[in-house]
Nucleic acid binder design. Structure first.
Lengths: 367, 367
DNA sequence: CTGAAAGCGCTTACAG
DNA sequence: CTGAAAGCGCTTACAG
């Protein structure tokens, strides 16, 4: 395999017998070029296969047209869906995408990642690492005076920061209300790691809904899993042993619901006859479980897309601000409009009803 | 939110009372700086929060330290695992990663993607789009004289190109041999889209193994799915209807195996009593199906990691070549060593035996 | 040990 | 309509 060197604008100019400025004008589709000059230059460009050097352009124009996305656990369903949305929207808007993993999302050690992205001159950052424990501690001292705008995904919208998130509290409510409506009263829960924001919100949605319905919750009714199917299986065994009166269990993701299903089956019980089950995520496989799984569908691709839209508007505001500064205008107006922090965007999930949670009376009809 | 402008080397130099060259030497840990000069500069760097501009560095040093990865179907299990491996190894080697999606992988329209990556001056490309139909047609005229090395993933290793792939043919053989060893003889197949290389290899592995065993294959024994669980369900219905004598089915990914399981259950049959099942992929969920699924585990993360290692060695070879050219040396040696194309790297999969394919006699023991 | 000069590939004023 | 000059932020020789 043989590698050619990159063709430069200077070579094109020489071959076409014009100056580099003129070549630049042609590349950028400026109107002020004589028709036949344009044609001549375009021919040379085609012949040499010239491609403008985006790095040189970035340096002079002070715009990298690049966004950074910081993700983690990409081999899980949720994070990869979000990344797909982020990529789609970025590419639609003409941004290149620099991908960074935070391999230990629970640590708050973000300096190397931020420094890497900033040194690459990204124009904005999508922070798609889940909120775990205090892994947002850095925000207060760092994010406030970062050089570029940053959008946070699936994080607690407390601190007046731009956040786009699935409404996990609502999802938890929806799942629980659905079970109540179907006539179930003793509803157990297998949660995700409760120090993760998403897990905690789903848990609170479940808890508050039961409390509002006047149902008291016993400790033995809750098991804290780790999102894995294996933990769902373990949780199921414990709940069935400690709390045999349960008539339903809300597993707070589909993988744990699968482990739960497996354990319930092993115990010789049938779903939903002896125990109703609701999951969370609506993975493509969940419709094909035995029985098909009722679950909460998240529109994660939209979370990713929305985040990029929001980021772009922040970037534009920043540009306005820069312009105002540079022009030494009275900047108050620009500052006011640019520092306007929109309400956090919560994206509502959707209840997908399948057989695993059917009402008892309906079950009888079916047979 | 307020954005600061980037600090430049010139500002650091001014503040520290030295020239920019000296600052540069400090940043790059050159030895030839007086100890207290170094300290003074480092202090200013710390105080101003100076970060070298990677774009300017790339331009002058002619090295972007960036790799491009072209992927598709990231919301599927396989592709996202591969990406994880690619990212891990890239970051270990100090490369930034530019992510590009080919949203329609079946089209061979790769010019925009290649041009984008090349204009971004990536030092190498990982082509992680699956081979579908003739979506590799562009290789013959384009890849051979690309400016940068490119590694192909999960592609037919025919054309003396650098390829890293899972050994799907071997995987197909392993699944089928396992079923034969367990005493099954009438083994149906639900394949992926047969114009995809991976699907086709698994199919051929299955077919050849049966032929070698002296078993004739009837047309009604094969169904072509599209990787989705829904297609697995459809396929199962057809196979069960047209070929009722089947005692096993090899579903060539786990999602289709799930659809198959669901349909078999609906038909009132039990697995593996009436029908044994083997899948392909070993998704984390597959151990928790009812019954747990025997499947072929691919080491996709290793595929990604290996690809990046190979890419790096190609990049180094290219550097050697450049040096040789530049020094006007007798380039034959360098050329010879650099154009050395290694054998395609096939990564062997692994059989994971679970209950869905247990031997009939074993089943009797279990009850 | 330190700095003035040149230049990576491009674009933005400015002058003709 | 066209081009000479300056410069984006950095590094690489070269000279002291």
């Amino acid at each position: 395999m043989e590698f050619r060197r990159q063709v430069t604008i200077a070579q094109v100019a020489r071959e076409a017998g014009v100056s580099t400025v003129t070549v630049s004008r042609v590349i950028n589709h400026r109107p002020d070029v004589a028709p036949d000059t344009r044609r001549r230059v375009e021919q040379v460009i085609g012949r040499l296969g010239y491609q403008p050097n985006a790095i040189a352009r970035s340096l002079i124009s002070q715009h990298s047209h690049t966004l950074g996305v910081v993700a983690s656990r990409l081999d899980y369903y949720g994070p990869s869906r979000i990344l797909v949305g982020v990529e789609q929207k970025s590419s639609e808007l003409g941004y290149a995408l620099l991908l960074c993993m935070q391999h230990q999302p629970e640590s708050g050690d973000v300096e190397p990642i931020l420094n890497h992205l900033l040194s690459q001159q990204v124009e904005g950052v999508i922070w798609a690492v889940p909120e775990i424990g205090d892994n947002r501690a850095w925000i207060s001292e760092r994010a406030a005076h970062l050089q570029v705008p940053i959008i946070f995904l699936n994080m607690d919208p407390h601190s007046n920061l731009p956040v786009v998130a699935g409404d996990n509290y609502l999802g938890g409510q929806m799942a629980t209300r659905h079970l109540l409506e179907q006539g179930y009263r003793k509803i157990g829960a297998i949660t995700g790691p409760i120090n993760e924001w998403e897990a905690c919100q789903r848990y609170l949605g479940w808890r508050d809904t039961l409390i509002e319905a006047g149902i008291t919750i016993r400790d033995c009714q809750v098991f804290e899993g780790d999102w894995s199917a294996a933990s769902g299986e373990r949780g199921a065994r414990l709940l069935l042993a400690d709390c045999p009166e349960l008539d339903a269990i809300f597993a707070m993701n589909d993988q744990m619901a699968m482990g739960l299903l497996s354990a319930v089956n092993e115990a010789g019980l049938s779903v939903p006859r002896h125990l109703a089950i609701v999951g969370y995520d609506d993975m493509p496989e969940s419709a094909f479980l035995l029985p098909p799984l009722t679950t909460i569908r998240q529109h994660l691709r939209d979370v990713g897309r929305t985040a990029v839209s929001l980021l772009q508007s922040r970037i534009s505001e920043g540009a306005v601000l820069d312009y105002a500064r540079q022009a030494q205008l009275e900047t108050n107006d620009a500052l006011a409009s640019a520092s306007f922090s929109p309400d956090p965007i919560l994206i509502a999930p959707e209840l997908v009803i399948r057989q695993s949670s059917i009402r008892r009376s309906e079950q009888d009809k079916l047979r």
